[in-house]
Design a protein around this nucleic acid. Sequence first.
RNA 1: GGACACCAACUUCG
DNA 2: CGAAGTTGGTGTCC
Lengths: 154, 154
Amino acid sequence: MKHIKFYSDGSCLGNPGPGGYAAILCYQSHDGQEHEKTVEGYQANTTNNQMELQAVISGLRALREPCQIDLYTDSNYLKNGITSWIHQWKRNGWKTSNKKPVANRDYWVELDALARNHQINWHWVKAHNGHIMNERCDEAARKQAYLAKEQSQA
Amino acid sequence: MKHIKFYSDGSCLGNPGPGGYAAILCYQSHDGQEHEKTVEGYQANTTNNQMELQAVISGLRALREPCQIDLYTDSNYLKNGITSWIHQWKRNGWKTSNKKPVANRDYWVELDALARNHQINWHWVKAHNGHIMNERCDEAARKQAYLAKEQSQA
RNA sequence: GGACACCAACUUCG
DNA sequence: CGAAGTTGGTGTCC
């Protein structure tokens, strides 16, 4: 299996508001060369957490084969959601611990389906704390968010 | 009641670092003459916001009777803090909206006690935007900050 | 009650 | 260009 380092981040101006996301995927080909692929996009009206989810969903969609992935996010919501909370949600009909419907259910379902094809190690990194790749994702996602803002003003 | 125009500003080299503050108080005596009083000072290690608070505290301390004051500051932090946020802080045990302890609590408590003796109209003015008196305060406060720096180097 | 993130605003500086 | 001092708010979960 290819081993991939997968960095992701989302941004949302105003929250809710125009948002963007970015994922950077790094891997080595057979001859030992480093490769890097960036996946990014934006949405006119969204939330910070939706963009964090979308970043990973879009990155995983770009993979054509099962991979072993080290995935880095600064979102506790995202990491805990997919590694822990989701098991309970599937069991209890997608209810929060306060019995309210889980938000962003569609995103979680799609993320779960995509993640199933790979072996993912989830890593949480603190935002704006000197992690170079996380900061690159942050900048790319923010740039996309500003694109979304311009589009919606035009 | 005496009517006073009260201009204040703070400065802090490095932030945190050596800082200074200045308040300029203008009023008319009975015979219609204009008077002006400047209060200033410095501190070896402080923050920009502490100096903004200290400027007003020191100016108010200089008053010997209750006055009607038009007070001008360029600090949104200062104006919103004393006119709006402080009510919630007193109610909830001085917690920030993120549940962390409010910073500079001692300054806020003293400012609140002093302000209570007067009738103050708070005005926010944009910094470095041509307001003559605000710029005079700015220069005086900066001068004090450099004094603090010299002292700490000596 | 806790945690993470996303923003908004002002100021102070380097 | 960069960071720090500070606050308010929302998105989300346990």
